[in-house]
Design a protein around this nucleic acid. Structure first.
Length: 153
DNA sequence: GCCAACGTTGGC
DNA sequence: GCCAACGTTGGC
């Protein structure tokens, strides 16, 4: 089983939104970055665990955990001309963008702010804390997952 | 709201 | 295939 971190702007889609969805499950649409797409399409597997991260907000933070419940399939919002994620270069015959379904697992009692993550030597190699990291989906190493999970006790 | 960092686009 | 211009991300 692998570990991941996925960013979302809480104004657009927060962990509370995920928790209140039917089956507490939602498709992760709108990824329009090739690196992030490749990870979703090629590497994310059923049961993989995901840190849910809130970005672009007052206190950027890891706020909880989700899991992969459906492996990659075409992101249909790319086919929809009325969607803000519409991409005419992605077609049903030859889809360019993919998504997975994720299910709510838990919300942390206390969110773990980016500021705190940056102080942890165990996380020096985590892409999230590196300068200028704009990846919206990134792998999390086992030891990084454990170190962060410990803060939720 | 600012701005640095980065990805993408497109001219050459 | 290089690189300048541009758009976007995301922390602050």
């Amino acid at each position: 089983m692998a570990y991941w971190l996925m960013k979302s702007e809480p104004d657009a889609f927060s962990i509370d939104d995920l928790a209140s969805r039917p089956e507490q499950t939602e498709h992760w649409d709108g990824v329009r970055n090739y690196q992030a797409r490749n990870m979703m399409r090629d590497q994310m597997k059923m049961g993989d665990r995901i840190f849910f991260y809130h970005s672009g907000c007052k206190v950027p933070a890891i706020v909880g955990v989700a899991e992969v419940v459906k492996e990659s399939y075409p992101d249909f919002t790319a086919f929809d001309a009325s969607s803000k994620y519409y991409d005419p270069k992605s077609t049903e015959e030859n889809p360019r963008w993919f998504m997975v379904d994720v299910k709510f697992v838990e919300k942390f009692k206390r969110a773990i702010p980016l500021k705190q993550l940056k102080t942890m030597p165990e996380l020096n190699e985590l892409a999230l804390v590196k300068k200028g990291c704009r990846l919206s989906i990134m792998p999390v190493a086992d030891h990084e997952w454990q170190a962060i999970s410990k803060l939720n006790q």
